[in-house]
Design a protein around this nucleic acid. Sequence first.
DNA 1: ACCTGAACACCGTTCAAGT
DNA 2: ACCTGAACACCGTTCAAGT
Lengths: 201, 201
Amino acid sequence: MQNPKLSKDEVARAALRILDEMGLPDLTMRRLAADLNVRPSALYWYFPNKQTLLADLADRIVTQGRPAELVTGWDEQLRLVALALRDSLLAYRDSAEIVSSSLALGLGENPAHSTLRDALDSSPFDAEMTQRAAATMLHFILGHVSLEQQRIQYDSLGALSGEPVMLRMESCAGAFRFGVDTIISGLKQHSLAHPTATPGE
Amino acid sequence: MQNPKLSKDEVARAALRILDEMGLPDLTMRRLAADLNVRPSALYWYFPNKQTLLADLADRIVTQGRPAELVTGWDEQLRLVALALRDSLLAYRDSAEIVSSSLALGLGENPAHSTLRDALDSSPFDAEMTQRAAATMLHFILGHVSLEQQRIQYDSLGALSGEPVMLRMESCAGAFRFGVDTIISGLKQHSLAHPTATPGE
DNA sequence: ACCTGAACACCGTTCAAGT
DNA sequence: ACCTGAACACCGTTCAAGT
């Protein structure tokens, strides 16, 4: 009565709700079905398997959230996109793990990578270096947030961490900026060493 | 008769064998027990749970393998350690995922992080920056190898990838060196910007 | 087209009981 | 001390059958 018809979108949104409230270990097909007042097998009409569902969630997570402010200068743009990406990821529990595992399927054409590559549009790098620069940044971001989220859930499990939670949050943000700035700084050096930008005729 | 007594070490080695031959999804407690000619519940005498077993494997994976050559200069040393760490990880299937998920438990005192930090011993960075530099490099390494391994198993699943496998392997190694060099280059800039090395009284 | 019912082939973990 | 037997509370996925 209250669910005359389901939809792919509804299924995905319900999954995101579970993810937000309980985390990835509790996001099972059976639990998702129960939340939608439906039998587990019904979900397989909308998604061929759980992996595909998770890939869909990964897309929504990185797409959702306000896009990074537009500025001039590839270095500052890359920095903003990286920070925005972290914010998007931190909006959902275990998102970094989900995005990571979905990366292998969409070989290179995933939204997270694209956003980073686009930020390098005005850079002096050629296509391959842009690709590698985006990959380097993406790997750092996912690695960092992945660990950050594992620690968050470890803390929330009642285990008393060494330092207070608010302090830790700031030190995480600081460590993240450090990594982003280090990579950008390294990329700048590269651009000075190999000036590919049409050297006058 | 052939297994009068089991040992923690034997269990771990058998687990590594499964990991090497079948990958993480096939490394179940039940399968591991079967390989050791023992009932699943017997494993819980040696490891309190699967998570602990995986943490033990993570330690062995990064510890195993020849240590990086010793050279002078923190930059070159860091580079060698990073490359050696990737080699160690590539020796076992899905190792990056295992090491990543074990990172949160041993909060900061894991061998992978330590090796990277030690490489920065002769650097001009203070303790906190050394910590962050090591973390930045570690996140990149795990992110990169994690994705690399996902693609390897995706390829081996029969799916024909765009480019030939040998070419891909080289491009992976190239992308990895690019990331490592970029981060080291960025760290060097930092050391120039903040010269903390006792500025002559 | 969309969903149920029922099954298949698994999991990790616990714990009394054996030796 | 070390292991078995048997259970508990789950998984993802398939597929004939209903409507």
